[in-house]
Design a protein around this nucleic acid. Structure first.
Lengths: 256, 256
DNA sequence: CGACTTGTTGATGTACATCAAGGTACGTGG
DNA sequence: CCACGTACCTTGATGTACATCAACAAGTCG
């Protein structure tokens, strides 16, 4: 059903990036921050943490002292049923907020695992309140991000509940390609996809075998190419059509 | 696939309830508010709105001047695909926040429809900023609620993606029963369920026919009873077992 | 080198969807 | 009052989109 290894984690911090120099911030997808906001973020950030590919960053049912932001790499969030079946909720890309649940509620309701080597920015959970109290614009951003995340999962749910296999696969691949594009990890209709067909299956509620056959159909129809982690879109319009995907829509978002 | 009628809406306000006298607030599931918080909520609340059963309260793609809280009744949130297939994201019960998306982002990404006659509390969208700025505890609550909603949808996604039909149905019914119970709409293992099997099907990504057959299995196994909108749990432990549902867990939550 | 991960493909099985028909309850207008 | 429609539930027959099983190829790793 799933495939969960869990190589070593390595939360070590060396020299950390000043939020003012954050490499993500210049990307057009992120809104501009004021100097005050940047100063606070810098003081809020308590460190960075590196995890190698395949590490479990947060575990369903546990509780972390930190809130994270993904600075570089790919990760994923998933839930597991008691008997091991696994559902990937979504993929995390640079700029995504991770572990808010454990900061705001009692414990994590899902796990987080890296797909590549990753760097996370660390924010101490107990200073989140400070953010809400003294930086309402940032608090608003946190809510915005959470609300957007909720919507993404809802879109995903609609896929799994009501789209056919080929529609689902087309949708997910297109979705991930576009998200990667927004953070500079894709371009020219090509992207490096660090996940396997098993991951796609676990995200779409399908078996690996059927996932494979479905992907092959898209490849044979010359809509995509995907080999050795290198992904390419050959016919975006047709792909979007199959996916019932709306190619418009694109809003600026905050990067806390 | 779906079944969407849309009777008339009637956003009329007469005398509105003071938040200090909110009938929901005393319920043990909601956290206590300070006098300051209550005073602000009262001033934030701009009215009430009644919708009869089957009304569309908010429409995917539109934009509302208000943020809502469900005061009484049942509603549901759903997305539709361009060709009409419909996925119910979740059900809304008294105390639930509705339409935050349209308040915080550009437009609604899903629709909201009432299942019974409903009363909503109205909050003007443009004063939400005031809440974030001057009432960080409430801002925190909004985030909390959003984060919890995200988790519920994630749980739902796990159901649709990885649970079998009988597990899904058991899970949903148990889940809804417990939520109803928390807001005083159920008790003694009995509840009034205002939705049809078509709704269950649209929530679980199944056909009505198969939903019916699955429900019958649960009835014939004497785990539940469900007739004429009257629902009863006969064997909660067994039902939870089938649903792979964790009967523990129960946290206080805010009611903004 | 074997062990393992990932992708691929065909054969078979099954959980579900679709189709079809009928039953009950409710409302409507004649 | 009945005749008629409509909403919802129910059940059996049939079809299919998917899962499961099995086997193998190619690459990687220790």
């Amino acid at each position: 059903m799933s495939g969960g290894k869990s190589r070593g984690a390595a939360p070590v911090a060396t020299q950390i990036i000043d939020c003012r120099k954050c490499p993500l911030r210049p990307l057009p997808i992120f809104r501009a921050f004021t100097e005050t906001e940047l100063a606070f973020m810098r003081s809020f950030k308590s460190g960075e943490s590196r995890f190698e590919s395949g590490s479990t960053v947060l575990m369903q049912g546990t509780h972390s002292a930190h809130l994270y932001t993904l600075l570089s790499g790919w990760a994923l969030r998933y839930k597991t049923l008691p008997d091991g079946r696994r559902q990937i909720l979504n993929f995390a890309l640079p700029g995504d907020l991770i572990g808010l649940q454990s900061a705001i509620m009692e414990e994590m309701q899902h796990s987080v695992e890296t797909l590549t080597d990753c760097v996370f920015c660390l924010f101490p959970r107990d200073r989140l309140w400070d953010l809400f109290k003294n930086h309402p614009t940032l608090a608003f951003d946190v809510t915005w991000l959470t609300s957007r995340e909720e919507d993404l999962i809802g879109e995903h749910l609609t896929s799994v509940g009501r789209r056919h296999a080929i529609e689902r696969v087309a949708f997910l691949l297109l979705h991930l390609y576009r998200r990667a594009e927004q953070v500079g990890l894709a371009g020219g209709d090509k992207a490096s996809f660090p996940f396997t067909q098993q991951h796609v299956a676990d995200a779409l509620g399908m078996s690996v075998v059927h996932t494979n056959k479905t992907i092959r159909r898209l490849v044979e129809a010359r809509l995509i190419r995907w080999k050795e982690r290198q992904f390419a879109i050959l016919d975006r319009a047709r792909l979007a059509e199959i996916a019932l995907y709306d190619l418009d829509e694109n809003t600026k978002r905050p990067l806390i």
